[in-house]
């Protein structure tokens, strides 16, 4: 029983790590650019296919797959920004609508290239079981947790300690004032897209081996990411981290009770309920909602 519970717990932490990596991108988009990007999960999906291609067709070693995927997403996102979002700066509804179009386009493009069949991404660590006390967990899963911690710590240091990070935070807090002080917003936006790409690429490369990769996998992840962000508070990085783990644990325990089919419904009901009770999120108030 204890072993079962601890394996669910570890599983929850792993899922939570993935949610966090994906949700951090969404939070950055809202916090800095004030846009809601419903195609973020689809970029994860594209990343998963990059990992699939790099691993299965290019036969790259797994560490290289991770790097290629992260780089690939970090390059892809600014390009998508240029093509899709750039002309719509300042509008909120415009980017939201185009992101729906982007999601449709990415989904069907990937389906055109790789078909709609589910694919598996190879990883040497998948069958490598590690014993922690009485529980044995695939090494693949365990990789996720330290990697996420390192990346989040790096992001934190980047935002707090570097000049560019300071600019990002300045634009997030006071877009007008920071412009007057010589910060070029387009530069900051570019940085945000690269960061979001790196984060989502890492999530894709590390999680894809444990998932079935399909062109339609993105939507659910987008929804999960927004659940995290809504519960954590829009644009609130700390809140998103807490919420990601809560959601990951809920997901894991609900599946553990044999209700895997209902996991999303329960998470979504949680989201809707949360929006009704505390529309401004768990941690702090941001704009958009009246208390």
């Amino acid at each position: 029983m204890l072993a079962f519970l601890s394996s669910l717990f570890i599983n929850g932490l792993v899922t939570g790590s993935m949610f966090m990596l994906v949700a951090l991108g969404v939070t950055l988009f809202y916090g800095v650019l004030r846009i809601i990007n419903l195609a973020h999960g689809d970029v994860f999906m594209v990343g998963a296919y990059m990992a699939f291609y790099a691993g299965t067709y290019l036969h790259l070693p797994y560490w290289a797959v991770v790097i290629v995927t992260m780089m690939g997403c970090a390059v892809l996102y600014p390009i998508l920004d240029l093509l899709v979002f750039r002309r719509l700066r300042g509008s909120e509804l415009g980017p939201l609508i185009t992101s729906v179009g982007l999601s449709m386009a990415l989904e069907s493009l990937v389906q055109g290239i790789f078909t709609a069949n589910a694919q598996a991404v190879p990883s040497p660590y998948l069958n490598n079981l590690v014993n922690i006390g009485t529980v044995s967990v695939p090494l693949q899963s365990l990789l996720m947790i330290p990697l996420t911690l390192v990346v989040v710590a790096a992001l934190y240091v980047f935002l707090r300690r570097t000049r560019t990070g300071l600019m990002v935070r300045a634009v997030a807090m006071e877009p007008r004032v920071s412009q007057l002080m010589g910060v070029r917003p387009e530069y900051v936006y570019g940085v945000v897209f690269v960061l979001a790409g790196l984060l989502v690429g890492l999530a894709a490369a590390t999680m894809a081996p444990e998932l079935y990769v399909t062109p339609t996998m993105g939507v659910e992840l987008t929804v999960d990411a927004y659940i995290v962000v809504v519960i954590g508070g829009f644009g609130n990085v700390e809140g998103a981290i807490v919420a990601a783990f809560i959601l990951g644990l809920i997901n894991s325990f609900v599946s553990g009770l044999g209700l895997a089919d209902w996991a999303t419904t329960i998470a979504l009901a949680l989201l809707v309920g949360f929006m009704m009770v505390r529309p401004s999120g768990l941690v702090a108030e941001r704009l958009g909602v009246r208390q």
Binding site: I36, E92, V223, A269, M275, P279, G288, V289, R290
Partner: peptide, 20 residues
Amino acid sequence: AATRIRGHYLAIVTLAIGVI
């Protein structure tokens, strides 16, 4: 359920409801 929700949050809530 969404009365207190303003602005573009509605897109997210209704997206979730559609999936539900």
